[in-house]
């Protein structure tokens, strides 16, 4: 389990061997480890972009990592707006990034 992870640490010691957990992010198959949050597993796999702003489409990733800012919200299976930083990955979990939504009632927009 090397990719993106801090295996050896001078004070905290070596990372324990953990069970692999298979999950998907926008249909890409990824591997994380038992007990990891969605946010940690995605970052370790090099995925920094978790969603885009529903209206402007600007990209977002992890910001506070402790459940306050809601920036890391993703869709998990049928559940919408799940905080990736507080949710532990499960075998077979289907994670989807948040997408831009239509704004049909916004003034001055043609679409």
């Amino acid at each position: 389990m090397s990719k993106g992870r801090i295996i050896d640490h001078p004070i905290l010691g070596r990372l324990d061997e953990r069970e692999e957990v298979h999950f998907t992010f926008d249909e890409n198959k990824l591997i994380g480890y038992e007990g990891e949050t969605i946010a940690a597993a995605l970052l370790a796999n090099g995925e920094r972009v978790l969603r885009c702003h529903e209206e402007t489409g600007k990209l977002r990733g992890i910001y506070c990592n402790i459940g306050h800012c809601m920036e890391c919200r993703v869709n998990v299976g049928n559940q919408k707006s799940v905080r990736a930083c507080l949710t532990v990955i499960q075998e077979g979990m289907e994670v989807k990034s948040g997408r831009k939504l239509p704004t049909p009632f916004k003034k001055g927009e043609t679409q």
Binding site: G4, I6, A39, L43, A44, I62, Y63, C64, N65, I66
Partner: peptide
């Protein structure tokens, strides 16, 4: 871009770079 506390948790708790 993340808060410094976010980086701390990612590094020391999750052990992810």
């Amino acid at each position: 871009v993340m808060s410094i506390g976010a980086a701390q948790v990612m590094t020391n708790v999750h052990r992810v770079r």
